[in-house]
């Protein structure tokens, strides 16, 4: 049975890993906790739904394409709006960390309620495009959707790590994160880098939103909030701003949640992540893989 819980935990962890990466990119650069990050997931999921329902009657591959496009467009629009209206003005203030924390919490509540009032306050059906009925594989019950989740996360996580560590733009992200003023003096257009980071982060959140829709089969105006907090937890677990660590920690978090639910109690499902977080913060304050300023 344990193997079964591990498989379920991995699938759940895959979503958290995407979120942790999405958090990690932004936090790594601006050093502000963005509580509205989870709303980018919701926006991604709603965008996907919009793309799907607007293209009713068209051939399925086209509809899937429009769905992905919708998710990307809406989530990126949200991310860029946050950068422009929330974080850019705040970064010019004297204590952006605290202000940003509160302002982004406000943005999160605002966005949830806009979505609630403008779309729906209850569950919306998300099309089951990938079968969720489990198949027997080596005695385990694995649903195709779980494969899709894991594969998507593996690809996106690898791309993100390579992007940050191997590309010129990634190098500028590390530079801006380490010393924004010198980056500016060095000729790096810091505003452009910030925008790029928000786009990359929104793309990951959009992917997470679509994955959640496929997995659970529903979308809701507040679907992103709790996973967002858990993604943030994974981001801290992995060492803030450390992209590799964030991905691994997301998977670990999913495993902890799945195994905790199975062997301890399902009542505390949402609590295990935070127990793990407190333990790590007490024992390894820089996170599991971080030395504070690692990549």
């Amino acid at each position: 049975m344990t193997a079964q819980y591990v498989v379920d935990g991995l699938a759940l962890g895959a979503v958290y890993a995407l979120l942790a990466l999405s958090y990690s990119l932004i936090f790594g650069v601006i050093r502000i906790v963005n509580f509205a990050q989870g709303e980018l997931i919701t926006l991604g999921c709603m965008g996907a739904l919009a793309g799907w329902s607007l293209s009713a009657g068209m051939p399925t591959p086209l509809r899937v394409g429009l769905m992905v496009l919708g998710a990307i467009a809406v989530s990126c629009a949200g991310g860029l709006a946050m950068e422009h209206f929330l974080f850019r003005p705040l970064l010019k203030r004297s204590s952006p960390t605290l202000l940003g924390l509160i302002a982004s919490l406000g943005a999160s509540i605002f966005l949830q309620n806009v979505l609630r009032l403008s779309i729906s306050s209850s569950d919306i059906v998300f099309p089951r495009l990938v079968p969720v009925d489990p198949l027997g594989v080596f005695g385990l019950q694995i649903a195709p959707v779980q494969f899709v989740l894991l594969a998507t996360t593996a690809v996106l996580a690898t791309m993100t790590v390579l992007f940050v560590e191997r590309t010129r733009l990634g190098l500028t992200i590390i530079a801006v994160r380490d010393n924004r003023e010198l980056a500016e003096a060095n000729g790096i257009a810091v505003a452009t880098v910030l925008r790029g980071v928000f786009i990359a982060s929104s793309l990951l959140a959009a992917a997470a939103g679509v994955m959640m829709g496929l997995y659970y089969g529903v979308a809701r105006y507040d679907m992103g909030f709790l996973p967002g907090i858990k993604g943030f937890t994974a981001c801290i677990l992995g060492g803030l701003g450390n992209v590799r660590g964030a991905a691994v920690a997301g998977i670990l978090l999913g495993l902890a949640e799945s195994l905790g639910t199975a062997y301890i109690s399902s009542a505390y499902k949402d609590g295990y992540a935070f127990v793990l977080l407190i333990a790590v913060l007490l024992l390894r304050p820089h996170g599991l893989f971080g030395d504070g300023d690692a990549r």
Binding site: D178, N186, A294
Partner: peptide, 16 residues
């Protein structure tokens, strides 16, 4: 003496 501390000497120069 400002530089990008986590990056190597070579990476700092390349970014220059």
């Amino acid at each position: 003496r400002q530089l990008f501390a986590p990056l190597t000497v070579l990476e700092n120069l390349t970014l220059g």
